[in-house]
Write a protein that binds this DNA or RNA. Structure first.
Lengths: 324, 324
DNA sequence: ATTAATTGTGTAACCGGTTACCTATTAGGG
DNA sequence: CCCTAATAGGTAACCGGTTACACAATTAAT
């Protein structure tokens, strides 16, 4: 590997001058600049990023901590973050935390040791203190860690209300809800939205709500139980698409026709929802946009650019397909 | 941030000694070691990875270059790679190349500048020369770049033959093939497998093979065309699951019942294939295993551990579900 | 008791950049 | 024509670790 010294020797100048040319900083004469550029080209010299990082205390890298990249929501998010990062000159270190607080902290530690410029994180367990101790820009995505910390979320409650009202408008008289894990803000907000719409309905009772833990297997079990207890249910709002798909599978098994006998609506708008049959009606979040914006915001923070606001709540949209 | 100097000052020793304790290298007296460990604990000192990397010319990081993390195959692969990497003390930089040769080269360059210890790559365009110029361990996954370079692949041809024979055994008399993109080794091998089984069948003609480009939209178009030209087709082997799903969608649209009137088998065994209805019969690759093994092999290479062989061809398995 | 081998620790060079500081030259203003 | 400001470029310190080397203190061997 050729180093800056080699280039300096070949160009007949000092390393400082080469560095100045490289970074286009300070005074460099026209003729000198040309000599240096020639030497750089000849040796196809690429500056050593690690040496740079050591001095700058920044590595042109951002960390992305998500529970699990296998969750299609985070897959799309990761792609968006990486796209934007590359576009702005950064690389992305991928971290799967499985929602485990210890792993999250371990990742935070090593990312800090690696001088990442900033971190995008989706976590339910991290505290404001943990984040502040880092002294690195952090943006929280999909979940709010604390007021004041940069955050990108979506209109969960509003979306849930839209979904529930939509089922009503389709003629559903008894609407159940498969909720996400307890303690997860998203799940609570979506539940609240549902509740707000149905609370005063004569048919409503708490047992219309079951917990699907945001995953398919739990949803299948929860739905089966729900439909066994309440065969009168003719509409289900699931707090995410995966659970909605699980619910539809159960309906198939029970011989209930979707959407004729049971309408199902999801939340997220993952690609999968258009792939299955029937295609899933869902509240779509602008997932890619979410990733883009979070990367943009993070990088603005990192580069100390002026920022309008550090809290961003994106709108959601109801996309009607064939499951309702 | 506390540095090694702070620790040395507090413990009343030189930085060299602290470094020795840290790395458990060289001679350190018992009492001295204790003093140093105490100081480390007190200051909750974490060594600066970047400084280390500069000296070692290694950053405890590996690069993972895939066409697109949104492709479920690569999602699962990425998860496996990251899991194994973390387990062995490395982080993963995620790179989406979109199969674009220029992007791939750009990633290789920056990864090298960042002193990654090694790279896992899935590419159709990279040449042996490009890889060798890096002078970094590289393992190629899912696709063979050149003989001699460490490679992990699966039994594509064998799997394709299994799939095709299986359709025959299910009573299909006219079996079409939706192939993957031209020039991609995988696609060619799977096509060969199919061809080998059907070449001598009286019904076989080249127009039973259409190109689905490995993606759903193309597959939908290709399948529609295939079934229009050849309504007699009663079995389809798609070169990946996504295309198989597309084919099933088309069958639904045309009112063909799957599997009664048209049997469909895929290839890959992505999670999605169990989520849809009907669940997809497919040739499953051990995707997670693939990722694990490649990470393991790469890291062995990086750490100069003795390696049995640098070429690994994993077996595939036919999983029978409801689409055949 | 003397010498050699082993153990313990500090000093300073090094990894490959960036930049503060210094000196020299040239240009512009009065 | 002299003085100040702007331009050009070199020297060396620094980022935070690792390790070769030197030297001192023990310990073991003869």
């Amino acid at each position: 590997m050729t180093s800056i010294k080699d280039v300096a020797r070949i160009a007949g100048v000092s390393v400082a001058t080469v560095s100045r040319v490289l970074n286009d900083k300070g005074y460099v004469g026209q003729r000198t600049r040309e000599k240096v550029e020639k030497a750089i080209k000849e040796t196809s010299y690429k500056p050593n990023e690690v040496a740079r990082s050591l001095f700058k205390k920044q590595s042109n890298t951002i960390g992305l901590i998500v529970p699990d990249i296998m969750n299609p929501f985070f897959t799309e998010l990761a792609r968006a973050v990486e796209d934007m990062a590359i576009k702005l000159g950064y690389n992305v270190i991928l971290c799967n935390s499985d929602g485990n607080g210890d792993k999250e902290q371990a990742y935070l530690d090593v990312l800090k040791q690696k001088y990442v410029n900033g971190i995008i994180v989706s976590s339910n367990t991290l505290t404001a203190q943990q984040v502040e101790e880092l002294n690195i820009p952090v943006v929280s995505i999909d979940r709010e860690i604390s007021k004041g910390l940069p955050t990108i979320v979506v209109e969960n409650k509003k979306g849930a209300m839209m979904a529930t009202r939509y089922l009503q408008s389709k003629g559903c008289r008894n609407i159940g809800h498969i909720r996400g894990s307890y303690g997860v803000v998203n799940a609570e907000e979506r539940y609240e939205g549902y509740k707000e719409v149905v609370a005063n309905e004569p048919w409503f009772r708490e047992s219309y709500v079951v917990n699907g833990n945001f995953d398919m297997q739990s949803s299948i079990e929860a739905t089966a139980e729900l439909l066994r207890l309440h065969p009168e249910i003719d509409g289900i709002f699931a707090a995410n698409d995966i659970m909605a798909i699980g619910a539809i599978k159960v309906a198939h098994q029970l011989g209930k026709k979707v959407p004729e006998e049971l309408a199902v609506i999801g939340f997220d708008g993952i690609k999968l929802s258009t792939v299955m049959t029937p295609e899933l009606t869902t509240i779509v979040q602008p997932i890619y946009k979410l990733g883009e914006i979070s990367a943009e915001m993070l990088i603005s923070l990192m580069e100390q650019q002026p920022i309008e606001n550090t809290y961003c709540k994106l709108d959601v949209e109801l996309i009607e397909r064939n499951s309702t």
